[in-house]
Write a protein that binds this DNA or RNA. Structure first.
Lengths: 189, 189
DNA sequence: CGGTCTCTTGACGGAGTTCAAAGCTAGTGG
DNA sequence: CCACTAGCTTTGAACTCCGTCAAGAGACCG
């Protein structure tokens, strides 16, 4: 829980009563490898803050293939915002890639917290704006670079992360086939 | 300016003094066709709310080709958030596709407004969260559908918009070549 | 009308997919 | 702690979607 409080305080100030309220309203959860936090068809009732470990958010396309949209790693929030905001059934799965510790932000308690702690409204505004910047950048990468270039670039940016997740998940995230990624790595391309 | 006030009030309540402050701090701007609001290398000092018309945000790739990342249409905000937040030079151009009326939100005045009107913090938090939902959906589309499918889908969703922008811009936004889009339309694919 | 944008068409090539099969690795239960 | 099996990675061949290039035909604006 300290991890989240620290993260929040990188952007806004929290009083002691604010922190007490957060401790009261939020809960920590240990996820086992392959445990699901959300499945297709369910409504996404929570936003998850990853303290340690790795989550993936993916959907299954019409050919039955898993397509990863996001990874959630240390100090990131992960959520199907469409489902969360509109309270609609989700198209996605959220699953722990490895054993993962998350902090659960329940939608049910959202309004209470935001009313009590206006700073949290600001925290999420700033955070969402940064997420938007990242999403814009992501779309740019997808258009600008070939699959090969995307892998090389990703590998350069997150060398340690590449080691930790299965290659086929990385391929899925990068929008290329696992076979092709294997060939890139072998230098056969 | 009413357009923006109305849009804000769809999400949060504004008092009369709040509105007065917004009238004072924001300014309206008429953009001519092809007028630039931002160019590559400049710092993005403003967020633009499109009242009427159409903006495009694009970059020029290493082959000198314009790649459109976003369109901004009625009641949407458009901004290079990366440049805006970090006050870094932008990689993008923002240009009016047609004559366009925008409301300019200057970063310089951001803190003043947000401190005076906490509801605006909430407004942008909600809005950014919706933008994130849209960005997630966009990435899903890019992975899930072929160029042909993306066009057909877009055409179905925004039939009127498709009529209004040049085809080569639409092709760029959809991530396909103008030639290929032409062939899709001709049914030669 | 003249020139600059914009759209169309066809031929060719290449990046990446799909399928199939085999080799490797690691987790789990006996 | 070993063996077995499911999960993961590698390889190659055939194929496909779509980009690139080039050239021409409209269309719009001054």
């Amino acid at each position: 829980m300290e991890a989240l409080i620290n993260h929040i305080q990188r952007f806004v100030k929290l009083s002691e009563p604010d922190k007490d309220l957060l401790y009261e309203m939020l809960r920590s959860k240990e996820c086992k490898r392959r445990e699901f936090l959300l499945k297709e068809g369910q409504i996404c009732h929570s936003n998850y803050f990853v303290v340690k470990g790795c989550l993936r958010m993916y959907y299954v396309n019409d050919k039955g293939v898993e397509q990863i949209v996001y990874f959630g790693i240390d100090n990131w929030w992960l959520c199907d915002y469409r489902s969360y905001d509109m309270q609609q059934p989700s198209q996605y799965y959220i699953q722990a890639v490895a054993a993962t510790e998350v902090i659960v932000w329940d939608k049910q308690k959202e309004e209470i917290i935001l009313q009590q702690i206006p700073a949290m409204e600001r925290y999420f505004r700033i955070l969402m704006q940064r997420n938007m910047a990242a999403a814009q950048q992501r779309i740019k990468y997808i258009n600008e670079f070939s699959g090969t270039e995307r892998y090389l670039h990703f590998n350069e940016m997150f060398p340690d992360f590449v080691q930790k997740v299965p290659q086929y998940m990385l391929a899925s995230y990068l929008g290329i086939s696992a076979e092709f990624l294997s060939k890139i790595r072998a230098g056969k391309v």
